[in-house]
Amino acid sequence: MVEARPQPPKAHPAIADPWPLRALLIGVTLAFLLIFLLLPLVTVFSEALAHGVNAYFAVFRDPVAQAAIRLTLLVAAIAVPANLLFGICAAWAISRFAFPGKSLLITLIDLPFAVSPVVSGLIYVLLFGANGWLGPFLAAHHLKVIFAVPGIVLTTIFVTFPFVARELIPVMQAQGSEEEQAALSLGANGWQTFWRVTLPKVRWGLIYGVILCNARAMGEFGAVSVVSGHIRGLTNTIPLHVEILYNEYNLVAAFAMASLLALLALLTLGIKAMVEWRMRLGLRLQAASVGGLG
């Protein structure tokens, strides 16, 4: 959830920790975060570049690697907009109207986060697999979902399902609907109100949800692994291709492909930090303008 964090209280002698404790706790934090978080990240790039820059870039000339990159982009290009549309609809209904069962709906939206990725893949196999409910129907019409691209897209939608909705719902609930009501009373129609009033107000929350959704969609491994069938050049996304290369002891190639996902993660964190900064700035400006008027 995006939270505009208030600034910490100014250090006051009565609530400041003594310096040995402060030094110890900062030391523990630095050691823990550097070993557990930074070291894996650095390792990805150092292993990828272990045999030099040429070996690194040669990895991406492999047509199988290129197919994995294309498939990953394709899956995200379908799953993210689908969940974006769902997130906007769910947030609009939940934040703007009163209806029974609303809190149950909010809980159900979060459900996919509670499910293990492997189980997420399995339930789609049970539905669309050869022995599944719809298996005979799909076979009769020569449609393939499991061990094919549609299965990968569906499970990706499942595991990234809550991201946009859960970011948008609190933001839209906090903002209320007075401005939309004003726009409507001034003669705007529903679409105009949404595009010109609601969307600009929630844009940072929306961007935040979309980048998190996208990062997970491109990086999902467990769920996709169950439904993909691991067919080289056809149903391997980047994370699955990383696994295959790693298990073949082709370490440079595995880490080179992994470095693409690591760069995506860094980009995601960068955008996230920027969005949080913009939201804090927005709140501060708002507070300043209210203070100025009052």
Partner: peptide, 13 residues
């Protein structure tokens, strides 16, 4: 970072 870094990347690292 653990939210953003795909799990297979973390695993091989």
């Amino acid at each position: 970072l653990p939210f953003a870094l795909p799990t297979s990347v973390a695993g091989i690292a």
